[in-house]
Amino acid sequence: MGNYDLEEQRVIEKINTGTYTKVLLQLPDGLKPEAWELVKKLEGATGATIFVWFGTNFGACDLPLGVQSLGVQLVVAFGHNQYIKDVRGW
């Protein structure tokens, strides 16, 4: 996975200690080429079905909604940390 720490072990532990059977990975464009390796690793270590978000990942302001209709219980968003939104506006 190159020189970026994707914390796979932390993700695996999160999935295995929860009751997650369907997990969605959201990757920034620079990490999208790593998706196949990541899916193989996580499916092998957890048994959960892993999906990959096809669309954008502009930041933590851009988390995918509506995926619960597919039964997804956990979204793992890579490449970002907590975003602080001012609800009053910009």
Binding site: D5, L74, F78
Partner: peptide, 14 residues
């Protein structure tokens, strides 16, 4: 209810 986990993907080197 969907949960979210954020992984910053820190550069491993100093």
């Amino acid at each position: 209810m969907v949960e979210f986990l954020l992984i910053p993907a820190y550069w491993k080197e100093e």
